[in-house]
Write a protein that binds this DNA or RNA. Structure first.
Lengths: 119, 119
DNA sequence: CAGAATCCAACCGGATACTG
DNA sequence: CAGTATCCGGTTGGATTCTG
């Protein structure tokens, strides 16, 4: 009773999968787009599918582990679609979904805001 | 050489104050507005000054410690202005600055995005 | 009232090595 | 190539207590 489903993360630890029921829509939105790298990832996908390693390289400073984790979360929420081009050797691309595109507008606003105020 | 200025945080630990020089403007913007609670705080201040405890109460789920830390960061960057109304008993309000208001547009976009897609 | 200080468990994220 | 597994130090953030 009162317990959530449990998932095991890559470090072998258990987590409750909280549906993020925060009353403030801004917080809920931030939980989805605000995590480290998520915005950048979506932005880098806006011009077409990108292969995993290319993406990791473009996000200078993010480790493969990070990129992988963020991509999984974003795939789960439906912001991004994973596509296997070939096995042997495996080739994978990630592309932004239609839903993902609905977030681009506000990412652009954020980008221009940051640039305008030289942050 | 190559070292940054050091500040001591509330846990007595030293930190380098990194100017956040990330190449991607989206990441830089997220560093400023994307932290947990920051967006919500700014949003709650948009209709006028709010007292510290009131603010903490409105942000259900955030501890006073969190609110205090986020407010300091936001004050440092100039998003928010702290004003002492009276000592004995001490009364303080936080109000959004003109600079802070420049970010409201994109927070509104985020808010509407989250609501529209029932996140 | 508005915080600061302290304690401490949980989590995050980098480095590295490994796999199909 | 595209990840996953493991180790592990650093950071985060909640609970609580204390102060002017």
């Amino acid at each position: 009773m009162g317990s959530f489903a449990l998932e095991t993360d890559s470090n072998g630890r258990k987590h409750a999968i909280e549906p993020c029921l925060h009353p403030c829509p801004i917080e809920r939105g931030m939980r989805i787009l605000g995590g480290k790298w998520k915005g950048s990832i979506l932005w880098h996908l806006k011009d077409g599918p990108v292969r995993f390693n290319d993406l990791a390289r473009q996000l200078s400073g993010a480790s493969k582990k990070m990129v992988s984790q963020r991509l999984q979360e974003m795939t789960d929420v439906g912001l991004v679609k994973r596509r296997v081009l070939s096995t042997k050797p495996i080739a994978v691309t990630y592309e932004i979904t239609d839903f993902g595109r609905t977030a681009l507008g506000f990412l652009e606003a954020l980008k221009e805001w940051a640039e305008k105020h030289q942050l």
